[in-house]
Design a protein around this nucleic acid. Structure first.
Length: 779
RNA sequence: GGCCCCGUAGCUCAGUGGAUAGAGCAACGGCCUUCUAAGCCGUUGGCCGCGCGUUCGAAUCGCGCCGGGGUCGCCA
């Protein structure tokens, strides 16, 4: 855009300068321009002479004079109209209004692609975010991660990268938290009090109620149930015992309005676990098979599967007339967790946050990937069952002060830690291991401050064990991913070192050792057995740091009545994101439809989350967010968009034909294409017009910067600034003037360009750009 | 104690090593017979926590303090 044209010009001028004076230094890349703070200083300024003076051995002001001459020579298109040297050696530029205005045409042509970048070296990036445990709703705290992650993905994509949005479901059967959650749900369903340390929030009762009502809770199984076509939930659950996995074997008989259907498995299920499982169950009807197929859920081996079955009427009742007995806690776990994930998904979707993959941790256990990777780590000599743990004593600045070796007791006196009975038999990895020795990931070889347990003494695998397999797997989404980005909450800060070590360990046998013949230092000798090993581990660590980026966002403090409003209340209740969205929507658009309310609530909440840099703690004023007032910047921005839309609408009524937006399936098209772009940009030379055009043209640059440093908040600032620049222009420059059709057309083109930039910026943020805004409440 | 983050106008916060540090809100004064006043224009408001250093130049980079927040499980 404008900026780039000027940079190109400067680079050419620098080349001339270097040639003429026989400078040898390579200084072309030092060229940068930026808009000066003082408008009197012109449209752009460069500090090149100050930056390059040392390299070229020239006084900055002298250099500036030479450069100005070179610029005049290079500027054949007369982009620069005024140029002067100021201060210690700045060069200020005023650009040709006509040439600046000409960029409007480019914006209109690019339309919804304006702000998308050409990228010569695109990355294939997996972005994992939110990923909260399936034991509760998405909280307002996680909302920040959702807003950040989703907006970041949009920006990375706009910058020309391939992006895969991923949510990791912590549904491993080893999870203590999930066991507790299931126990709580089970207790509620069975009319017992929730265990002391269990989950007590209202939503837990809600989940229990949903499961109960969708299952009928008749003691031995979960039938009969109501089942709606095309709906995922509610749906019947029943459990298929693990020994039933042979082809053709009948698992259950279900009755659909008198018609009996048989559920059986086709093919060897175990071999296909888990991805293909849903397709391998077939439901065959013995008599009068209903014409339409639908899905129901079954629990198999700790996993929920959706099975195509026969059904046809909206309110038809299934009854499972025969199912093998034995509802374990696991069934409740699967049912409640599944329901929870489903709610999370729809809550996030109402918050403009969607994922390409919802990845199940348990699937890695089921497929054997975790065990496989564990073996791989042991073979790579980065994990072992030696009876000790290494801890690093870190000095300031990341230097290792000391390496401490903690011997671990080898005796087996705490067999107490064995599994609760309920969970026997379905543990990932339990049965095919010989529990006795703790298996350690020697993560201290990769910069972590202590070794981590992969497998407990009792044979159960830890969370970090699945993490290794998971990260390996992640590199396939998108195919041959070049980078993983993980967005984590502030409480996970300590996890960065561990995660990096995990990725490094996983890659350890593939890394090309660094070239370092230094013998092992005293400290290194405690970590590595050889120079070769050290070099390999360090190379692998470097690889991990290059391929895994962890972004931590800081805490959000919610204020209500000026006082902190806790996200997790003492009574176990949780302030859910969806409640926030609904509350805001309700206040702002009391007369809107449900969808409109949620859109409005989501817009405000997202904008608030994204206004602050993610790496700084923020206050979220709930009053302010729900207030439909001038204090709320999202309305300021949206209002500008609505205002533009209104002007354009009005102009159309008066017979002006607009430069069209390229078709994108929605919004207005603005009349005939032919000739519509022929507006006279030469008429645009008012300072407010130039300022607006320059601001519009900034978008690609802002996208580029944001994709580099992930500071998504920059785009909210940009949107506010663009809105401000427009409002200011609007006040000074009347757009529609029937006695000046040419000027009107040119200004309309500018309005359209502003609208494009504004809408695209808001799109990146996941905030809607309404065509009209009517105050429903005046205060 | 180690690590991470923050400290900028009365409040909430922007700010890419550049020139006289900005915006919103709050306070005050103007601007609607004409395109949406959820707007615009103006005024008031600052040892950019403190100190030292690097630099031609520091709110920005480094070190040290002071103050505030977070985090350091065989939980996930």
């Amino acid at each position: 855009m404008v900026r780039n044209s000027l940079i190109q010009l400067l680079k050419t001028a620098v080349k001339i300068l270097v040639e003429k004076n026989g400078f040898s230094a390579d200084v072309e890349d030092l060229v940068e321009v930026e808009p000066p703070k003082q408008a009197e200083h012109g449209d752009f300024a460069t500090n090149f002479c100050l930056v390059a003076s040392k390299k070229l051995g020239q006084n900055p002001r002298v250099l500036a004079e030479m450069l100005v001459e070179a610029i005049r020579e290079a500027d054949q298109n007369q982009l620069v109209t005024e140029i002067d040297i100021a201060g210690p050696g700045f060069i200020n530029f005023k650009l040709s209004a006509t040439q600046v205005a000409a960029h409007i045409g480019t914006v209109l042509e690019k339309a919804e692609d304006f702000g998308r970048l050409e990228n010569d070296s695109p990355e294939r990036i997996n972005v994992e975010f939110v990923s909260v445990n399936p034991n509760g709703p998405i909280t307002i705290g996680s909302g920040r991660g959702a807003a950040l992650g989703s907006a970041l993905c949009n920006v990375l994509e706009a910058a020309g990268n391939e992006v895969h949005r991923e949510y990791y479901i912590n549904d491993g059967v080893n999870s203590e938290q999930m066991r507790l959650f299931a126990e709580s749900v089970k207790a509620i369903i069975e009319g017992r009090p929730v265990p002391d340390n269990g989950y007590k929030g209202d939503y837990v009762y809600d989940v229990a109620q949903s499961i109960k009502s969708s299952s009928g809770n008749n003691q031995s199984n979960f039938a009969p149930v109501h089942f709606e076509p095309d709906a995922i939930a509610p749906m019947p659950f029943f459990e298929i015992p693990r020994f039933l996995h042979e082809s053709g074997q009948t698992l259950a008989i279900i009755t659909v309005d008198g018609a009996t259907a048989k559920v059986s498995i086709e093919g060897d299920v175990r071999a296909e676990m888990p991805a293909e499982i849903a397709h391998k169950f077939v439901c065959s009807c013995e008599n009068q098979c209903p014409p339409k197929t639908h899905r129901f859920a079954a629990s198999y081996n700790g996993q929920t599967m959706y099975v195509d079955s026969a059904s046809y009427a909206v309110e038809s009742t299934f009854s499972i007339s025969s199912v093998l007995p034995g509802h374990s806690l696991d069934l409740y776990r699967v049912a409640s967790q599944d329901l929870m994930v489903d709610r999370q998904r729809s809550n996030l979707s109402a918050f403009q946050t969607n994922f390409d993959t919802w990845f199940s941790e348990q699937s890695l256990h089921d497929s054997g990937e975790v065990e496989k990777e564990l073996d791989h780590l042991i073979k790579s000599n980065v994990a072992d069952d030696g009876p000790y743990r290494i801890k690093l004593d870190m000095a300031k600045g990341g230097m290792i002060k000391d390496v401490i070796r903690e011997e671990q007791p080898v005796d087996e006196d705490d067999a107490e830690d064995s599994l609760p009975e309920d969970r026997g038999g379905i543990e990932g990895g339990v049965e095919n291991s010989s529990p006795s020795k703790t298996v350690w990931l020697r993560s201290t070889k990769f910069g972590d401050d202590q070794d981590r347990v992969l497998r407990r003494k009792d044979g159960r695998l830890t969370y970090i064990a699945s993490d290794v397999a998971y990260h390996k797997d992640k590199f396939s989404r998108p195919a041959d991913a070049t980078k993983l980005i993980t967005v984590l909450g502030p409480d996970h800060h300590g996890y960065i070192g561990r995660l990096t070590a995990v990725v490094a360990a996983m890659h350890a046998d593939q890394a090309e050792p660094i070239n370092n013949s230094e013998p092992l230092s005293e400290i290194e000798a405690k970590l590595y057995s050889s120079v070769e090993e050290r070099n390999r581990c360090q190379a692998s660590l470097a690889w991990a740091k290059e391929h895994l980026e962890v972004q931590i966002f800081q805490i959000v403090r919610f204020l209500k009545d000026g006082k902190p409003a806790p996200m997790r209340k003492r009574d176990g209740n949780i302030y859910a994101l969806i409640d926030l969205v609904n509350e805001i929507g309700e206040t702002i658009r009391p007369n809107g439809t449900e969808a409109e309310k949620q859109q409005a609530g989501s817009d405000v909440a997202r904008f608030f989350y994204l206004m602050r840099h993610h790496d700084t703690a923020m206050d979220f004023d709930l009053e302010l967010a729900t207030k439909q007032s001038d204090e709320n910047p999202v309305f300021y921005v949206q209002y500008a968009h609505a205002r533009i839309s209104s002007v354009i609408e009005k102009a159309k009524e008066q017979g002006f034909t607009l430069p069209p937006l390229r078709a994108n399936g929605e919004g207005e098209r603005g009349g005939e294409v032919t000739g519509a772009l022929n507006f006279n940009h030469g008429l645009l030379n008012h300072p407010k017009e130039i300022a607006l055009i320059l601001k519009i043209c900034d978008l690609p640059h802002e996208v580029e910067r944001t994709a580099k440093d992930y500071s998504v908040n920059r785009l909210t600032t940009y949107a506010i600034e663009l809105a401000r620049t427009y409002h200011s222009f609007y006040d000074s420059c009347r757009v529609i003037q029937s006695d000046q059709p040419e000027l009107t057309l040119a200004r309309l083109a500018m309005c359209q360009a502003t609208r494009i930039a504004l809408k695209n910026a808001l799109n990146l943020l996941g905030v809607s750009a309404p065509e009209r805004m009517d105050r429903t409440v005046t205060n």
